[in-house]
Amino acid sequence: MKARPIVWLTWGALIFFMLNLVGIVGAVVTNSFAESWFGTWLPNGYTGKWYGEAWRDYRLLDVLAVTFQVAIAVVVISVLIGVPTAYALARRNFPGKKLLNVLFLLPILMPPMTYGIPLATVLYKFHLAGSMAGVIAANLVPAVPFVVLTMTPFIEQIDTKIESAARMCGANTVAIFTRVLAPLLVPGILAASILVLVRTVGMFELTFLTAGPTSQTLVVSLYEAMSSAGIRPQQMVDSMAVIYTGSMLLLLVIALRFVNPTQLVTRLKDPA
C-alpha cells in the first residue's frame, strides 16, 4: 500500500511532539541530578543530593502522608456515595431524574475555579477551610459525579432478573447489594476507585483553594515550592517534581493494569 502524505504528516508531527516531550521531561530530570547547570548543553557534574534535601526541606513524608490520606478518603467516600446513586439513576425512571442527571454532570463540566472559589468561601464560613476535612470535601465535588458516570454503564449491564432471582430466594435489599451486586460490580468499582485516585492526586485547583499549611497535597506543595523558588536551588524543586511524576506514573501503571486507557478520561456516554 502506498503511504499517503497525510500518514507521513501524522507520524512526523507525532514524532516531533514526542521529541519535544522527551526534551521537556529530560531537562527537568537532568536538572534534578545536576550539581549546577547554567547556559551549557549539559550540567557540569551530577549528584543525587537534591532529592534528599527536597525530601527533608519540603517535609515530603508529611506531604505524601496527607496526599495519601486525602486520596483514600475521597476514593472511599465517593464510592460509598456514588455507587448507590448510580444504581438508582440506572434502574429507575422518576420525575426529576433529568435534573439530577444534570446536577451530577455539572461538576465535571465546570472549571474547578468556578465552584471552587464559592466553595472555599463557604468552607471559610464554617471554619473548615485549611483543614483536611475541607480538602476532602472539595475534592469530593468532582469525584462523586465521576464515580456515578463510571459506574452507570457497569450497573446497566447487570440483568435486573438476577436481582429479582435473589429477591425470590429471600434476599433483602442489603443482601442483594452485598452478596449479588457488589461482587458483580467489583471490576467497575475498582476502575472507578483508581481513576478517582489518579484524579485526586493530580487535582490542583480545589486543593489549592481549600488547603492550609498542614493539609497540602503533593501538587500544591510543589506549586508553592516553585512559586517561592529563589530561596532554594531550582534543582530541589525539580527533584520534587520528579518525585511527583514518579508517583503519578506508578499510579498510572497500576491503573492501566485494571482499566482500559480510554476509561482514564471518562465514560461519558451522552451528556445533556
Binding site: G202, Y223, A241, M248, L252
Partner: peptide, 8 residues
Amino acid sequence: PITLGTVL
C-alpha cells in the same frame, strides 16, 4: 503526559 502534572 497525564502524569507529568503542571509543575513538571
